[in-house]
């Protein structure tokens, strides 16, 4: 490395981030902050859910069914945001070849899938008393079903390829192309059927949508679920790093035996 390169790297203000890309450093850093994230998650998620479940009044049009919002909205938000996070991680892997980034995308997929399923089921159960049907081919519901299919395909591709680097490359390309088509599907579905679902309940003009009594515990629940995602993501990425190391050691063993 030349002198200019070194100074350039030293000046890179994203260095704090790229520290995480080194697997050894990642393991020690994530090990250190994991208990803190876990604790914060417990401190926000549990009160948020308990507040939402026990201490919120009935809403005018929804009755007590409004309580479903505390599990429906956070899971739905995570389902989409986790896909975005996987897209970013895939891009980082493709551009900068940081293994931890690819493994983080892999680790996030199952969390995203679970959240999508949870959002779909809670939405269906909520839809039955509200709209009189469990399922309607409403744009938002349909988009989530499509998102579910994308998660399935992504995870299936990871599972089908043996070589870890090949798998990381191909799934990243799929994630990229898939994101474009997922976005296209979103608009296509909108065009195809204007639906029953109310607009986003958390837009900036919250007064119009949800009053404070429901909004405050909801924010707490969303923060809690997000921290839960971070906790699980760190745990699962650590697992993937360990698996990768085991895989490397075993390959080396086999080479030595041969």
């Amino acid at each position: 490395m030349t002198e200019t390169h070194r100074t350039k790297q030293a000046e890179d203000r994203w260095n704090w981030l790229w520290e995480w890309a080194n697997p050894v450093k990642f393991m020690s850093l994530s090990g250190k902050i994991l208990p803190w994230v876990m604790g914060l998650c417990a401190l926000t998620l549990l009160p948020g859910l308990i507040w939402g479940f026990f201490f919120t009044p009935e809403a005018v049009n929804f009755g007590s069914s409004v309580k479903i919002i505390y599990v429906h909205v956070p899971t739905a938000m995570l389902a989409i945001n986790i896909w975005v996070m996987m897209l970013v991680a895939s891009l980082i892997w493709l551009v900068r070849r940081h293994h931890v980034s690819a493994l983080a995308a892999k680790a996030a997929a199952l969390i995203g899938l679970t959240m999508t399923v949870a959002a779909l089921f809670t939405g269906a159960i909520w839809g039955e008393p509200m709209w009189g049907t469990y399922w309607a081919w409403d744009p938002r519901l349909t988009s989530f079903l499509i998102l579910f299919l994308f998660y399935l395909g992504y995870m299936a591709l990871w599972g089908a390829i043996d070589d870890p680097d090949t798998a990381a490359d191909l799934t990243s390309v799929l994630c990229l192309v898939g994101s474009v088509f997922a976005l296209l599907s979103r608009y296509a579905v909108n065009f195809w059927n204007q639906g029953l679902h109310q607009g986003a309940s958390l837009s900036l003009d919250k007064q119009e949508n949800v009053s404070d009594v429901y909004w405050q515990p909801l924010v707490l629940a969303i923060v809690g679920f997000s921290l839960l995602f971070v906790t699980l993501l760190l745990l699962r990425t650590r697992t993937e790093v360990r698996r990768r190391r085991t895989h490397a050691l075993e390959t080396r063993e086999r080479m030595a035996d041969a």
């Binding site: 499509i146 299919l149 994308f150 395909g153 299936a156 591709l157 799929l174 192309v177 898939g178 088509f181 997922a182 296209l184 599907s185 608009y187 296509a188 579905v189």
Partner: peptide, 8 residues
């Protein structure tokens, strides 16, 4: 993999 991409 391909079928979801066919949706739009």
């Amino acid at each position: 993999l391909v079928l979801p991409l066919y949706i739009p």
